[in-house]
Design a protein around this nucleic acid. Sequence first.
DNA 1: TCCGCCGACTGAAACGGATCAGTAGACTGC
DNA 2: GCAGTCTACTGATCCGTTTCAGTCGGCGGA
Lengths: 353, 353
Amino acid sequence: MATRTPEQPRPAGGSRVTIADIARDLGISKAAVSYALTGRPGVGHATRKRVLDAAEEMGWYPSSSARALTGADAGVVGLVLSRPPELLTFETFFVHLLAGLEKALAERGSSLLLRVIGDHPDEEIRTYRRWWGERRIDGVILLDERYRDPRVAQIREHRIPAVLCGGPLRDWTMPALWTDHGLDADVAVGHLHALGHRRLAHISGPTEFVHERARRRGVRRAAARRGMHVETVEGAYTGPSAARFTMRLLDRDGPDRPTAIVYGSDVMAASGLVAARERGVDVPGGLSMLSWDDSQLATLIRPSMTALRRDNLAYGALAANTLLDLVEGRNRGLVQLPASRLMARESTGSPAG
Amino acid sequence: MATRTPEQPRPAGGSRVTIADIARDLGISKAAVSYALTGRPGVGHATRKRVLDAAEEMGWYPSSSARALTGADAGVVGLVLSRPPELLTFETFFVHLLAGLEKALAERGSSLLLRVIGDHPDEEIRTYRRWWGERRIDGVILLDERYRDPRVAQIREHRIPAVLCGGPLRDWTMPALWTDHGLDADVAVGHLHALGHRRLAHISGPTEFVHERARRRGVRRAAARRGMHVETVEGAYTGPSAARFTMRLLDRDGPDRPTAIVYGSDVMAASGLVAARERGVDVPGGLSMLSWDDSQLATLIRPSMTALRRDNLAYGALAANTLLDLVEGRNRGLVQLPASRLMARESTGSPAG
DNA sequence: TCCGCCGACTGAAACGGATCAGTAGACTGC
DNA sequence: GCAGTCTACTGATCCGTTTCAGTCGGCGGA
């Protein structure tokens, strides 16, 4: 806009210093300044130092827009959280994931562009398309793979670099992070079997999520291997849903009634616990409980909740690094996450009968 | 890179359609296309429609870099969460805030650039400076104002548009969101007074946060107005810290022992509850408890926790709108948040004595 | 009939940085 | 003493969009 007096080292209107300013001050060309600043050969030692010092002193920052325009990466990764906000709240999973993601991104010089929307896959894809079209992002992270997930085909069609949390995919066009839920299920069911349980119930999250399907299958197989009886119920990720199913199971008598319940999340398990207490059922004396997600909540309730603990910080970091590798041209393919660890607490014990 | 055959409407390598492509296809100038696409006068009705249709069909998106380069806003707001990740996890406050923030931003066409770092104000300011210098963001949101907060002066010096969550500031250079903690304190203390309590303790969060100072002052004044005795302890936002202070208070005998404790957060209160149970103290019979933050946790523990509830979704939305207004040139000054609502639950009752 | 004006459009410059094709000058080798 | 090479730099062009300064044709007014 207005011409600035050269005497003023720091322009008043915020840092609007460009390489042209530095070039003028030092009496050299813009190209030389660019070479010096990007660490490329083409300038002498002394000049490079002068440029670097001047840039530092004048408070120069590279304009991300200008750089992106010449073909550089955006240095930004996109993430859309498409679960209703009230669900996000409870699940510490997301915050952990976000923190891990961000830490890994920061270490490699990228940032996170975030959008929180309700449960609306269409809107999620449209957001990714727009961000990608506008050259805002280098790639995206697809959370919570669903059964016949429409996002996968769309992301592939638009050739947006992505990592899928949920996989594995049949083809290897897209790196995927996956957990061996069968293994986790075996640990959980094994723990209950060792305590003497023979009849158990599994109140899972919605089966539209592939990881919930895998967990259900895992629990059924682990139980079958041990000759246990298991009943699987599809719940929502909410307290009331879990409480309702818990009540229903506890209303039964005799051998139809499970002696242990496995819940899909910590909030579900905590709500189940409250429901059991209202029915006058002692935990773990009359019923054992196990949660598939560990969190602070599990340690703050009484009895404290036995839970399968996953390192979600590490999960996030792995997702970020897998995506950045892909952006740089290295497709890691199928990345397996470490198995969960069972945190045995007060909510599991030997059945009374 | 390689020249593309003009027969192919959608280029294979992702959407790389530019206004030049549209101009060539339609046999008009780039300028005309730009006028049509931005809704500015300068093209006729028929031409505008042809351009719009072509853009739609060819999958054109405006390059955010190119737009930003010509002086447009970045359409992005920056947020740095500078609390250790393990604290972020517990406090549902952040997730709620994020969701509210994002919803309001999306409605006005902006996105959120997020960074999660440990408790390091220097790093936070450096991140903001860099983002601003790189023209990545239009403004920032400063969370959790601290006593003598170094961020305020720095943000002001660099002329980065910002809204301060904590305020009010002495001068009005920066819009600020603030809560009348005195009012909230009065509601909480009034509730306990009405139940018959006369000796209470307040285990607050760290006093480096201005809102904690305001709350402590508020509790002391509200208690003094009613002739109650109050003791204020500075805790950390962690369970163990709250548990330790609770134990210490319960170790006392007779009139030195408070009959009610107000906690700085839901996790602190839940931990205090566990500590009380370990000491064999009945809640609310032997001790009443009240948490300054409401969350799912408060309803999942037994006894359920009486809490002050703030609408953090609305808080986030207000912060976002205040910032976007500022970016557009309207400084809202001091924005007051609605008072908290007391959610009376099982953890408060009349004292035994 | 001619002037002035308006609408519809064009050409070119600008934004900030990267990069390509040069070009002086110093140095090397013979 | 001169070609050849290397270093250290310069000038120009490009990226995709906005915007400024025109240009051109048509139309109304006097």
